[in-house]
Simulated scan of single mutants.
Amino acid sequence: METLSRARCFGGEQRVLRHRSAETGTEMRFAAFLPPQALAGDRVPVVWFLAGLTCTEENFTVKAGAQRVAAELGLLLVAPDTSPRGEGVPDDPQGAWDFGLGAGFYVDATQDPWAKHYRMRSYIERELPALVGAALPADLARQGIMGHSMGGHGALTIALRHPGRYAAVSAFAPICSPLRCPWGEKALGHYLGPDRAAWRQYDATALIEDGARVPDILVDQGTADGFLDTQLKPRLLAEACGRAGIPLTLRMQDGYDHSYFFIASVMEDHLRWHAARLERMAEGRSRPRA
């Protein structure tokens, strides 16, 4: 693990780190904000942020405005990259921005030439948490996960596949059903092949239909988002949660678009949502059994 940069921030420290990944076979970077409590020696809860198409670990770190509130709440924020990168990593043959580099979709690809490096599911679910737990003062018994757009899809599906691991899950303008939108059909078709049954493990609505559950979900969506009706489709998530009895707080934010200006506007609400649930998780584990 190599620390590429560090900077004091709201009494804590913002770092960018790099390591060699066994899953992707490439060097990977991620950003980590350590709150003051972590610098003082405490092991603190972790909230993961998964970014969207074309992004790296930098977008959330410099644009979301999360560090001030995370410092107050004592949350360690981890923002991974969105895909493998480097020599030999294939990109979209047409040079499009919605597939390949910067568009890993948090899946483990099964099709050539993507299968060798595009293993973002295993990287996020297994490899990176183990590295963070060993290298940083992170309490992996207390985790939350959130994401934006493609990363919102990633956060929702990862939480649904791992009931009990995350105290909270939330999303900003998530791709709610990759099975039923152009971005998802392109990405899953290339990474996983034509069998749409294999795609269901990477679709939040399908996972819920197939029995996956989380205690509750928070989603913020801008009404002026140009991708709302064609790619994101929060109505499908609302319908799936309604049928399954999963409490969904879906807030349609009037006039907001798909950008980080929108994310920064509601970030504090999401961090406090996570902190409240992480605190309840800690209280429940510390309560003596009868």
Rank of each mutant, 00 (worst) to 15 (best):
K186M: 07
I175W: 00
S149F: 01
G164C: 06
G152C: 01
M150T: 04
Y123H: 15
G152Y: 01
C181Y: 10
R165H: 01
T157P: 05
S170D: 07
A138P: 12
A134F: 03
M120A: 12
H153T: 11
A109L: 02
S122E: 11
E185G: 01
T110H: 10
R126A: 13
G164A: 07
Y166H: 07
A159M: 04
V132M: 06
V107P: 00
S177K: 05
G189D: 10
G154C: 03
P163C: 03
I124P: 00
T110I: 04
S122N: 13
G154W: 04
Q111H: 05
M150F: 03
A135H: 13
D108P: 00
G147A: 12
A168K: 07
R165W: 00
A168Q: 04
R165S: 02
K116C: 10
A173I: 01
D112C: 02
R180G: 08
E127H: 12
L156E: 08
M146I: 12
A130V: 05
Q111W: 01
C176P: 08
R119V: 11
I175A: 06
I124R: 04
A173G: 11
M146H: 05
L140D: 09
H153P: 00
R119Y: 10
Q143D: 10
R161Q: 09
D112M: 02
K116R: 15
G164I: 08
P182A: 14
A130E: 15
R165E: 01
G184F: 04
G189K: 13
L131I: 14
R119W: 13
Y166W: 05
R180K: 15
R161L: 07
R119N: 14
G189I: 10
E185L: 13
I175D: 06
L140I: 07
D108G: 02
A155Y: 07
E127L: 08
P178E: 05
Y118S: 13
V107G: 00
G151R: 03
M120E: 11
P174N: 07
Y123W: 13
H162C: 09
M146N: 03
P163N: 06
F172V: 02
G164N: 08
R165F: 00
A187H: 10
G144Y: 10
P178K: 10
L131T: 08
H153G: 05
C176M: 06
Y123P: 00
D108W: 05
I158G: 03
C181S: 14
H162K: 03
R121N: 14
Y123E: 09
P174W: 01
V107K: 00
R142K: 14
R126F: 03
M146C: 14
P113D: 06
C176H: 08
K186F: 02
R161K: 08
H162W: 00
S122T: 15
L160S: 04
L128E: 06
G151N: 07
H153Y: 08
L160M: 03
T110N: 00
L140N: 07
M120T: 13
A167P: 05
G164Y: 02
A167S: 12
S122R: 15
L188P: 03
A115K: 15
G144W: 09
K116N: 09
V107C: 09
I175L: 12
G154K: 05
R142E: 10
C181G: 13
F172C: 02
H148E: 13
Y123M: 12
M150D: 03
Q143K: 13
S122M: 09
E127Q: 10
H148L: 14
P137Y: 10
